[in-house]
Simulated assay, not measured.
Amino acid sequence: MKPPLPANPRHIAILRLSALGDACNLVPTVRALQRRFPEARITWIIGKGEHSLLAGLSGVEFVVYDKASGLAGMRRLWRELAGTRFDVLLHMQQALRASVLSLGLKADARLGYDKARSKDCQHWFTSHRLPAHPQAHVLDSFMDFARALGVEDDRPEWHLPVPPEAYEEAYRLSGEAPYLVINPCSNARLRNFRNWSVEGYASVVEHAWVQYGLKSVLTGGPSATERDMAGQIQALCQPGSVVNAVGATSLKGLLALIDGARLAIAPDTGPVHMANALSTPTLGLYATTNPDRAAPYLWREFVVNAYPRALRTYLNKSVSDVAWGQRVRHADAMGLIEADEVIARLDALLTATADRGALDEH
């Protein structure tokens, strides 16, 4: 008979390597564990880029695994932790690579997802499983790990660390005038299809500039696709209405830029969850992923949700017909989002958060 999960763990390991948005959604679980077990050590085994985003998170010891290092990197990590034994390992990464990595970690208990949520046979690598939680938001799926350890206070808190030099970096790009952050692209994974249209974004930039005097700061990584899309958006917009900062920020600088924004707009990608974590008003654009599962958690009511339309159009199904987490992998799906509905959500979100705008001006 297996022993129960520890009632008062002294050293908790979290295994979650990627991605940026998921790392942001996991931070409230860390904060809940810290409130419940203030004396416990928390070690988070994390990916290299994700560590760049969250470095300095209070009360957390990070151990970084560079996914590009493969098995050699795993061996280095195992040697680094050879003298460490955890009371419990929270196995939050549903990927075979992470499960193989977990084999070299010493833990009295290994907690993973229930079989319905488990992927890549993760349940073979754990001693305990979460209770079932169908149709959970990603943030709540992570919080289930804290609840399984007895956490009752599960209110979402982040307190992300943003150093002064990151705000200096952001200021050099944004200046003093109020601005929106628009992150047009998601990351370039195979058949991701989460990017909206150049023309749609340009319409939103124009509306924000003419109606509210808000310039738009375009953000993103240095890839050719992101640079090209930002250039096309800028070419359609009035001079002065757009700052092209694509490829020009560090991750901490991006956090600072988002923190100072009046509002952030993005598809289902890291910056939409970074904005949510910073309590920046957030407008998510969703068609290929279900926002009930992956929307910016605090701003779910303001999401533009074309996911049901995409299911009907490309799969001839409704939300109730498909598995939780089903994606619509069609290149035209995001085109179902109309500029008018994004602009209407933008107006509603700016109105609902008008007090924040007044504070930003003083």
Rank of each mutant, 00 (worst) to 15 (best):
A248P: 09
V272Q: 03
F193R: 02
E61W: 14
A55Y: 06
A261L: 10
R117V: 05
L130S: 01
E168A: 15
V63A: 15
F142H: 11
G253C: 11
A306R: 00
R155S: 12
H207N: 09
H51P: 10
A148V: 05
E361K: 10
D321M: 00
L346M: 13
A107M: 08
A170D: 04
L251Y: 04
Q234T: 09
R117A: 08
I42C: 14
A208Q: 03
P267C: 06
A40P: 14
A264H: 10
R172L: 04
G240F: 01
A333W: 05
S69I: 07
M74V: 07
D347W: 03
L33I: 09
T351R: 10
L336D: 03
H362L: 10
L130Q: 02
T84D: 11
H207L: 06
R189L: 05
A277C: 06
L190A: 09
C185W: 04
Q93F: 12
A344S: 14
V88H: 07
L20R: 01
V27G: 02
P222L: 10
D154S: 12
Q94S: 15
Q232I: 12
L311H: 00
R189W: 08
F62K: 04
F193I: 05
L254S: 11
T313K: 00
A230Q: 08
N187E: 11
Y113A: 10
A348W: 04
Q93P: 08
G21T: 02
V63N: 10
A339K: 08
G357P: 08
D87M: 06
A264C: 13
T351F: 10
Y286Q: 02
Y201F: 14
Y167Q: 12
P308W: 01
V64D: 08
L77T: 13
V64K: 09
P38F: 06
E301S: 05
L130P: 01
D66N: 12
